[in-house]
Amino acid sequence: MRTTLPLAVAFITGVVFVITFFLNEESAIVGGISKQLLDWLIIIGGFTLLLGVVSILRVSWQSVERRKEDWIYKLITILSVLVMAIPGLLPESWSSLFGRQEGSIYDWLFLNLQAPMMATMFATLAFYIASAAYRAFRARTAEATILLVTATLVMLWRVPMGEAFLNLFSEEIPGLINRYIMGGVNLAVQRGIIIGAALGAAAMSLRIILGIERTYMGKS
């Protein structure tokens, strides 16, 4: 039963979604069923959020309780979860500081702490790109050299100063890079990967629908 029921659910929902793809949603009952299933997914997802909160609080609390290494950060995590969640969950009617509207504690914390921290994290990507590019573009092999030359041309084409530099030689160069490197070689390879990935995803979906693939449930 522990295996049969999930397999039956996977089969029925999979078949319903496949069928609805070939039917007009407006006129088909099945179209309504697929919409219902998507709504259920959102509702289940909302409830499972509690699982996540419990997990993060339990793991962090264990570290604090046992005074494990870096326990102070775990304490900050617990406090952050509570400080963000509690005022956000309290009704707005109690105070304008509660809820998630503009001017609330939640809103202030999000705009002034969480958003800048996430933006900072994203901004560090530039440095990571530089170090990865340095390693990838070292001209040790013929392939790496081709990569280096191609990347240099594309980078020159992408930045205004580089484009102005290329225009000194010929105004056609940026257009040629766009047409042959980005729209030719690059696009062909990307399409190859996308076709392969789409087939792989379809094959895996079929294996799941038919119950051949059970590894996602921990079964073989």
């Binding site: 289940i44 997802g45 499972t48 959020l49 509690l50 699982l51 996540g52 997990s55 590894t215 996602y216 449930m217 921990g218 079964k219």
Partner: peptide
């Protein structure tokens, strides 16, 4: 990153 992935991941790892 998602609670549903947490539940599925725990199940799969436990079975393993």
């Amino acid at each position: 990153r998602y609670p549903l992935v947490l539940a599925a991941g725990q199940e799969v790892v436990e079975q393993a």
